[in-house]
Amino acid sequence: MTTPPNDGLLFDVAAPPTPVERLLLLADQYVQHNDTLDQLLRAGSPSDPAAHVASAQHLASATHAAIEAVSDARLFASHELADAMFRLQQLAFLSSASTDHELPMARTLTALAPTAAIGCADTVARELHRRRAHSTSAPDHRLTATHHTALREIALGNVVTTSSQGREYVHYRDERVLIGTLRSLEANGLTERVPDSAPSAYVDGPLQDRIRLTSIGVTALAAVISSPPASKGPGTAPAPAAAATKTGAARRL
Results as ranks from 00 to 15, higher is better:
residue 21 E to P: 00
residue 96 S to Q: 15
residue 61 S to M: 12
residue 41 L to M: 15
residue 99 T to K: 05
residue 6 N to H: 10
residue 39 Q to H: 05
residue 177 V to W: 02
residue 178 L to F: 13
residue 102 E to K: 05
residue 85 M to G: 07
residue 206 P to V: 09
residue 103 L to E: 15
residue 113 A to H: 15
residue 235 G to R: 08
residue 7 D to G: 07
residue 183 R to Y: 03
residue 150 A to H: 04
residue 196 D to C: 07
residue 36 T to W: 05
residue 198 A to S: 04
residue 80 E to G: 01
residue 131 R to N: 10
residue 143 L to E: 12
residue 243 A to F: 03
residue 206 P to K: 11
residue 184 S to C: 06
residue 11 F to L: 13
residue 2 T to R: 07
residue 236 T to D: 14
residue 172 Y to N: 06
residue 105 M to Q: 03
residue 46 P to G: 02
residue 252 R to L: 03
residue 64 H to K: 00
residue 118 I to C: 11
residue 11 F to W: 14
residue 157 G to C: 08
residue 219 T to L: 09
residue 205 G to P: 06
residue 69 A to S: 14
residue 81 L to N: 00
residue 219 T to K: 13
residue 144 T to S: 15
residue 202 Y to F: 12
residue 200 S to H: 12
residue 104 P to G: 08
residue 96 S to D: 14
residue 132 R to Q: 15
residue 116 A to H: 04
residue 216 I to E: 13
residue 249 A to K: 13
residue 26 L to C: 11
residue 44 G to K: 14
residue 53 V to P: 02
residue 239 A to W: 08
residue 111 A to M: 09
residue 178 L to Q: 09
residue 181 T to A: 08
residue 118 I to R: 03
residue 207 L to V: 06
residue 139 P to A: 10
residue 17 P to L: 03
residue 224 V to I: 14
residue 17 P to D: 08
residue 150 A to T: 00
residue 53 V to A: 09
residue 204 D to N: 13
residue 108 T to L: 15
residue 34 N to Q: 15
